[in-house]
Nucleic acid binder design. Structure first.
Lengths: 348, 348
DNA sequence: CTGAAAGCGCTTACAG
DNA sequence: CTGAAAGCGCTTACAG
């Protein structure tokens, strides 16, 4: 379906420049720029100001940020690197970061660092555009990528990337505490035989913390036994792990999964294949609160990651780093428990 | 948790320029640039090339895309405008668009056009950075925003925004056909009494097409009766609509919702409050295939939007428009049916 | 408060 | 194939 209309020719007449406006208004080019520069426009006489504004309006003047970036030696652009395979949670974080940056008058240049794609290239692109700073909000950054990032000459902030030897500021969900708190809750709710489903093969850094936090949380209550299973974060792998778990003679009565998608699989297998009642006969809980958790068919109790705190902190850290030399901070954001109906309450 | 390390000073030594490299390599500045310009680097002698590359490596030279944009009169940046309240589907579209653009060597400048935020401002920012083109992938663009976009001097492509008087190219899901095909399927599956849940109060353009396509699809099979209900796209509103529907003496046996979240609400109310078996006693289907639809607890039959075709077409259209004057196209992308278990099959 | 001039780091004809 | 020069559209001292 085509018609005779055409796009505005991309070879259209050049947009007006400050020089054009100056000529029309009968003032100097520098004066025009001063009118459009917040730091100066108070120190400009109202008369000149009016003339310039009028001329600018007539010519449809729109100042050239590219030229400004070149002379001002900062671009007003923040590079944001996300990860290809990221989920609802990271999407939410990205949305918040974009919003905040936009409100602060900064621009976002977005890059997707697919696992297979070279982070080096992405970083290079970012540096070519002389971004003022970079926020890396990626679950899956390999250690080689980390080495690359380490060479960045511009301020960097890492979101949810754990580094043994911090070379820049970062904000991280406290996965250990999140899991530990869940362990507390599950023990107090009356759990007896526990199982934990991990996703070890994943390149996500945070997995071991979630497991360690959980196991340690149990231990603090004198529970030293916990069946360990694993999947790959998918619904299907959760179902398979559940079958292995529920086929055991020493079947667990409480299953905690390091991701909610796997937990949906556990619940569906338990109910539809093993005819188990949830939570009466089996308690299920998971890390990461995704959409389906709130639906009546699941009502899954979860550890909710603090996406707002994460993004706020990331913004604060990157602004600080851009302002000038600042100490490297590692901030831990506290997750919270989202209690729903998938865990039975026999005690308390 | 702070430590003594510091971010690389943002007032660090200036990055090396082509002039620095030239000096070090003992060649002219233009030669340096030619080595780094794909269009030229074949017409450069290997000897000179080597010298330049070596010097560049030593100085850690990274060409300045800002300066290049200024002289080359194009920035290599595409503005992408998304909508604050958008869902999984739009997120997927955005991801694909970002990926493709990145692979084509273009940069993405991302803006979030919240309904309350001025599209005018977003457009202005984009124009200041002299983006080469703009892709608007937003479900919620008001007509006033449309008027603003209309003034864009740079090529524009609209994704899923319907305009009565097309002023630029766009790619749109064929909501009418999607619904009509679902109507076909539901009638052939043996549906008798139909209901449609809309979300009329939404500012989304596409809603009436989904309804009309559905009603017309029914009519083509001689079905002129369809109960009309409405919600606001949320799970809760779907539950409420379901209660009203299932309380009727002429209770429908087939419910089609214009969004899947509302359909989850319908299913949960039907099963848990009305003790209805799905699909035996009630068939449910929805527009838009989101994650939970594939879970065993729902197995919702849906109309799946063609996110890949949508993004591919958007890329093609924006490239065309940037290349030069091109006819305005309105491309319709065909959705497909994702058949699962939420609709009974009594005939055929 | 305003203007003239230099310069940001490239690209692009134009010579040679 | 290589270099010198002008210019992209701003900002930033420096005068006045």
């Amino acid at each position: 379906m085509k018609n005779e209309k055409r796009h505005p020719s991309s070879a259209a007449t050049r947009p007006a420049t400050s020089r054009d406006v100056a000529k029309r208004a009968g003032v100097s080019q520098s004066s025009v720029c001063r009118v459009f520069d917040e730091r100066w426009n108070s120190k400009v006489s109202p008369a000149l100001r009016e003339k310039v504004l009028a001329a600018a309006r007539e010519l449809g003047y729109c100042s050239n940020a590219i030229a400004r970036s070149l002379t001002a030696q900062h671009s007003g652009i923040i590079g944001v690197i996300i990860s290809e395979d990221f989920n609802e949670f990271y999407y939410d974080v990205m949305r918040r970061i974009t919003n905040s940056l936009q409100e602060l008058g900064m621009r976002v240049m977005l890059f997707n660092a697919a696992p297979y794609r070279d982070v080096k290239q992405v970083l290079r692109s970012l540096l070519e555009y002389r971004v003022d700073g970079i926020i890396v909000t990626a679950a899956a950054i390999s250690t080689v990528a980390e080495a690359t990032l380490q060479e960045s000459p511009v301020p960097l902030v890492l979101v949810n990337i754990y580094s043994r030897t911090p070379f820049c500021s970062s904000v991280i969900c406290d996965n250990y505490s999140g899991s530990q708190n869940m362990a507390d809750y599950l023990v107090r709710s009356g759990g007896q035989r526990f199982a934990y489903i991990s996703a070890e093969n994943s390149k996500y850094y945070d997995i071991s913390d979630r497991r360690e936090g959980f196991l340690n949380g149990l231990r603090r209550h004198g529970v030293y036994d916990c069946i360990l299973e694993s999947g790959d974060y998918t619904y299907e792998s959760g179902k398979e792990a559940a079958r292995r778990l529920l086929d055991r003679p020493d079947r667990p009565d409480t299953i905690f999964s390091c991701g909610s998608r796997m937990a949906y699989g556990v619940m569906d297998v338990a109910r539809y294949e093993y005819n188990l009642k949830i939570p009466e006969e089996l308690s299920v809980a998971a890390y990461d609160d995704t959409f389906a958790s709130a639906l009546d068919s699941y009502r899954l109790t979860t550890v909710q990651q603090p996406s707002q705190e994460l993004s706020r902190t990331a913004i604060r850290l990157i602004r600080q780093a851009i302002e000038g030399p600042s100490p490297i901070e590692t901030v831990y954001a506290m997750p919270s428990l989202e209690i729903r109906g998938s865990v039975r309450r026999t005690s308390e």
